[in-house]
Design a protein around this nucleic acid. Sequence first.
DNA 1: TTGAAAGCGCTAACAA
DNA 2: TTGTTAGCGCTTTCAA
Lengths: 337, 337
Amino acid sequence: MKATIVDVAKESGVSVATVSRVVNGNYPVREKTRLKVENAIKKLEYVPNLQARELNTQRSSSIGVVVPSFDNMFFAQVLDGIEERLRRSSYSLLLACAQNDAAREEECVRDFITRNVSGVIVVSPNTETAVSEFYENTAARLPLVFVNSARELAGISYVTSDQRGGARAALEHLFHYGHERILFVQGENSDSYRIKEKVYREIMRERGAFHPEDIVNVGEGNRIETVENTMFILMDMMQGLAPTAIFCCNDLMAMGAVNACQRMGRRVPQDISVIGYDNTALSQYTAPKLTTIDQHMGDLGREAARLMLKQIEENVTENVMLANTVVERETTGFRME
Amino acid sequence: MKATIVDVAKESGVSVATVSRVVNGNYPVREKTRLKVENAIKKLEYVPNLQARELNTQRSSSIGVVVPSFDNMFFAQVLDGIEERLRRSSYSLLLACAQNDAAREEECVRDFITRNVSGVIVVSPNTETAVSEFYENTAARLPLVFVNSARELAGISYVTSDQRGGARAALEHLFHYGHERILFVQGENSDSYRIKEKVYREIMRERGAFHPEDIVNVGEGNRIETVENTMFILMDMMQGLAPTAIFCCNDLMAMGAVNACQRMGRRVPQDISVIGYDNTALSQYTAPKLTTIDQHMGDLGREAARLMLKQIEENVTENVMLANTVVERETTGFRME
DNA sequence: TTGAAAGCGCTAACAA
DNA sequence: TTGTTAGCGCTTTCAA
C-alpha cells in the first residue's frame, strides 16, 4: 500500500507533526531531524495526500472549467490560455464538457461543487442557464467566471471580447480600401452574429450605403458544411448584386466566400475583397490567406484564469473586455480594374 | 459557511449515519426519516464533500489526463473521446498540459499522484520519458494508459493507431487508380513519419518503383507554415520529376501539395492525385476536399478511457490498435489525359 | 525544536 | 431501522 505520513514518522522515529513540518517547510526543524525524515520519505516513496490536506485545511487547489464542446477550435484555444495561466499557480484544472446543453452544463457545475473546487470558469455559458437563478445561487457559494457571455449577473467576473469594435474595425478596413458596397454574411442562433449585424446596419446606414438585400444568412454557421453552404448561397446571390467586398461573421464563411469568388472567376482581392472573423488557424491555411479579425482567444482564457485567481484571493469580481483587432493577410485590398 | 453532514443531522434530528445512508441510498431508511433528511438537505443547500468521502473510502473518482499541447487539433479530438467515455462513468477528468516537454510531463503525472487520481492517461508520451524508469515506477503505483506511444512497458495499457496499415492502404488506394510514380512527403522528428516512410520504401521496392529522390522532407511538419513550405518545396521539386500522385504524411502537407499543383497549372485529381493523413477537420475545408486517412482520434480517446476503467476495475492491462482507414474525397482518382 | 492530540467531513462496522 | 464511534491522512494548536 501507499505510504502515509504515519509510515514516514515511524520509519524516521519522529512524530507525524514533525514529518508534516518537514514536508511543508513552514516551521523550524532541526537539520538532523529533517535529514532523517527526508531519507524515510525517499525510501518509502511517500507522496503526501492532497485530499487529506485539503480536507484538513478547508482549502482546495483545483478549478473547474466547463466548455460547451471540443470540436470547435475556439474552445481549445481558450482552454490553452486558461491552462497556461493556471500552471503558474498551484491550482489544477478539472475539465468538463457541457455538450452545448443547458441541463448538462448545470450538472457539470454541480459536480464541481461536490468536488470542492475553488471556483468555476464557464466558457460560453448557455444563454438559458446564464440568466437563471442557478448561477445566482452558485455565485453566492463560490467564485465564478464567465467567458464570452452576453448577460451579466452580480458576483460573477466576466471576460468578453469586443465584437462591436471588431465589426467596426472590419468595415473600416474595407472602407479604407475604397469599398462601399459590402455584403454581410452571417449565420443563425448566435448572439455574436446579432452583434455584428447591428453594427453593420448602423454603419452602412450612416453612410447611406445600406441595402437590406446585402445581408446574407447561411444557416448553421459553425459546421464543416458551412464553408460549402456559404459558397453555393453566395454564387447564387452574387449574380444580381455587384459588391466589391464581403464581410463574413467567421472564417468558415469567409473561406466559402473566397471559394465562391474563385469559382465565379473573380480574383481575390483584385476584383473583390473578403474579410473573416476569429483568426482561427484555418485562416492561414487557405490560399490566398484570409484577412480576418483576431479575437485573441488565448488571452481570453488567460484573463479568465487571472480573474478567477483574483476572485479567490481578494474576493473581488472584475469585468474585462478584450479588443478585437484586424489581421491583414491576402484577401483584402484596393480594387484593380 | 457550507453545510456539512453534521448540520443536516442536527437540522433533521437524526444521526450523521442516517444522513449518510439517505445521501448514498445504500442502506434501508424509513420513508418518513428519509423525507425529514431530504428536507433538511434542501433547506441547508447541503452538498456532500467528495474529498472527505474519498479520504474515508480510500477511493478516488478522478482520472488525470496529460496532453503534450493544445494547439494541435489531434489532441483536442482525443480529449473529446476521453471526456465522452468518462462522462458515462462517475469519474471526472483532471487535465494538464506537458508543453511538449519531458520534465514537465513527469511533473504533471506526479502532481496527479498527489491529487490521488485513480489513474493517469498520457497522450503521446514524450519518447524520452516513455522509456525511463519513471513510468515503470509509476505503473507499479497506479493504472496507466498510453495513447500513441511506440515503446511498450509492462503494467501499462496502450492504445495506438495502425499507421503501418494506414500507409499501406493509402498507397494501395493510389495503385488502384493506376498510379505508379508516387511522391512521398514527410517531415522531421516524429516516429509517425518514420513508420510511414518505412512502409513506403518497402512497398515501392517490391513493385520495383522506388526512387530515392521521390522522398521529400519539408522540415517541421506540424506548424501552420508547413502548408506553405510544402508548397514551395514541391513546386521546386516537381519541375524535374513527373509523379502522378503524392502521398503526404499529414493533411497540412497535403494541402500544401494541392496548392503547389494548382499554382503549377496541374488539375487535382485529373492530372495528379494527392492523399493526406489524419482526416483533420481541415481536410474538408479545402477545395477540392482532401482524400485522406482517418486515424479515428475520437475512438483513440474513447478506447483510452475504456482501458483505464478496465484497469481500475479489473486490474488488467490491454493493448489496442485501431485501424486507419481511407476517406475518399476529391483529390484522388484516375488520370485524365 | 518536538510531540500529543483534536478535528476537517465522511463512511461503515457494530450495537441496539 | 437507527445511532455510536473509529478512523481515512493530514495540519495545527498547545504544551513540553
